[in-house]
Amino acid sequence: MIQLTMVGAVAAVIGGIVAVTGRDSRLVAAGLFLAMVAAPLVSSPEPTYTALVFRGLGALLAAYLLWAATRNGSISSEGSAIGVPAEIVAAAAAFCVGWYVVPVKPLAGPLAAQAAGIALVVLALGPLAGRNILRGGVAIAVIALGISLLMEAWTASASSLDQIVTTAVMVGIVGATGLLISPTDVDLADDVETDGLADEEVGGQAVSEPDTEPEALPLTGRARRLGVREPRR
């Protein structure tokens, strides 16, 4: 019989993979929502319904904050730096390692929580090295979720207050990410070196500027064949 903790662990890891590798911000928000909803299921004994509802509401709020910050379409993301298959393989390998290693003996919580926690931590390491704020923020949320699962596995300390505080941490991290990637302030556009451009042009460009760095996007093979040159750095 498949246990609920195992289902929750796998769902959390799948959500983490989607959040880390998604190229569309809506997909990122959906993946984060799935991971945050599934994570409290990986607990033994199972948390109360109140705690589950609270965690679910927190996940919904976090996903909404991220979606609201990116819904104008001005922010796109490159997706995974190492590719989706590589991320899946890395997560699966980390899950297996977490399933078989025994760092704490005896384990206080479910083994699936340890496996999922290690997998989520490994998944988040790649985006943390980049300079993309959205990717970094999502990776921090995923790694915090992974640590909360490890805490559940190693110390089994998921009290009601613990659930509330964990939810607050997750919502805080995702909310901070949404704040920091939201469109720029128009009132600060006065400080821009205009270089002959009108203020409206600068302000409009600033608002619609994607968060990703232009030079970070490589030219496609078709563009190279057409003779498009790489932008100067």
Binding site: V165, A168, V169, A176, L179, T184, L188, D191, Q205, E209
Partner: peptide, 20 residues
């Protein structure tokens, strides 16, 4: 963990810089 949660509020007072 609550100390960590308190830290996230700091993002509110960071000004969103203008690209370029």
């Amino acid at each position: 963990a609550a100390g960590a949660a308190a830290t996230t509020a700091g993002a509110l007072v960071i000004a969103k810089g203008v690209p370029r």
